[in-house]
Nucleic acid binder design. Structure first.
Lengths: 254, 254
DNA sequence: CTTGACCCTGACGCAACGTAAGGGTTTATC
DNA sequence: GATAAACCCTTACGTTGCGTCAGGGTCAAG
């Protein structure tokens, strides 16, 4: 007395659900949804139970679960709701993390695009270089530090930034000269250079020791920054460090 | 007189950059980054140019470009900045779309998780069913309509919603009975049922014809909703439609 | 009996590598 | 100078969720 249950062939089911035949084949192959019957010729015949399961699969897919997770969710259906809650919460956490990451990506690209739109003629070489430096920074600084740096740059203003960027190479050239001459770090000339150096760092970092530490890590691990050989910069940094130490010592002895 | 340029073996370069040897092999194979030299034993030897290019690749990867896009960006470096701008803007648009989609996903999962946490003991079967219905709704309603529906539900209150959910099956049972008896749609009993039907739809849709249309599409294309056979519901809907039409006709003749 | 419209299985392709397998090279140590 | 540890090489399959043929049966209509 059973009412001749409806059966679907793959193509019919595919059209009805908006999926492709290939997708249904795939679900069959991996055992996620196997038709409850086959015709004598081997045609897949899906029953109402199968259609219901397919609905569930579609829904869970829409929520971004993998086929494997869906299988577990559907097969562990006997389990308590709490275990499902855990699965969903883990999934949610992963998703949120992804969203945050992509959000950051968007921000970065936005900044790059803005720069590109502003300068009417950016040499491609320079653009790529700036991208490299941007992302390099972002590997060494925490998001909070980057925000602080952005604020700092705004406070300094475009012009002062250009001044500083012009100042650095000059300063480094002078330091290099003294190093080559073998001038003692306690020499007044070196002391003056050390003060300028310290002031520039201070200006860039805004006095934040965390940012200074990140900057140090960056120079320790990258081989080139702004086209400079970091080995040379590190040597200078050490020299300047000795100069500053010598000065402090001199003060404490006074 | 060239200063014995530094060369890296794969493992060294991998350690220095934090990538894996396999990744460098991969880049070599696909021609994205081929070491400028090989040792006599066939060892890959990367020069400074190679390292620079790798930096660029890493940076662009961090921005989410595919290896293919990176190759194009780096190889078309002669091209103007504008073409790069276009690439970046397209990428940005795609990313933003992704973020929006994932944001929506998060919202949906959030709602499900909230429900799960609230009800201390949710039968897994029911949970999955509610997920199915939720996502089904979201396939048929536009985001704006969904928002409107959410507001509507809030306005009605939990209790009224439960009342309505209890009311529907009773009403449908009565309609089915009249249909079976073959009562004419213009019969006063059917007219009363039609009015109750119309009122419930009105309450759910908030009188929005767009939402009513989406609801209709849903019942036309899905085979089961809330465990009901939609074919039966469609038949009832048509019957009620005739009843309402008959009434309007009666009025216009009056 | 031949179309066409279905259906089947099998297998390669995609992105960006991970993970062996099987076998040479260098380098340090005994 | 032998041996072992640490590297390096190429080849090739696995991953995710299907898309896209290829080669070949099945079924209803004309």
């Amino acid at each position: 007395m059973q009412p001749q249950r409806k059966r679907w062939k793959v193509g019919e089911l595919a059209r009805a659900t908006g999926l492709t035949v290939r997708t249904l084949h795939h679900y069959d192959r991996i055992g996620l949804l196997q038709p409850s019957a086959r015709s004598s010729a081997g045609y897949r015949l899906y029953g109402e139970q199968d259609v219901a399961r397919l609905q569930q699969i579609r829904s869970l897919r829409q929520l971004g679960f993998t086929l494997e997770q869906i299988r577990e969710l559907l097969d562990r259906r006997g389990g308590d709701g709490a275990s499902h809650l855990r699965v969903i919460e883990m999934h949610l956490a992963r998703l949120r993390e992804q969203v945050r990451a992509q959000q950051r990506l968007c921000d970065r690209l936005e900044r790059i695009a803005k720069r590109l739109r502003a300068a009417e003629e950016v040499p491609a070489e320079e653009l790529i270089q700036s991208i490299v430096e941007m992302t390099m920074f972002e590997r060494y600084y925490t998001p909070e530090q980057l925000e602080q740096l952005a604020k700092r740059r705004e406070a300094l203003g475009e012009e002062r930034i250009r001044e500083v960027e012009a100042e650095w190479p000059r300063l480094m050239e002078e330091v290099r000269a003294e190093m080559e001459k073998g001038t003692d770090p306690s020499d007044p000339r070196v002391q003056a250079l050390a003060q300028r150096w310290r002031a520039l760092i201070e200006e860039f970092t805004g006095g934040d020791p965390g940012i200074a530490a990140s900057l140090k890590r960056l120079y320790e691990q990258e081989t080139t920054v702004h086209g400079l050989d970091t080995a040379a910069v590190r040597a200078m940094g050490e020299y300047i460090g000795r100069a500053l130490a010598a000065r402090r010592e001199g003060e404490s002895h006074a």
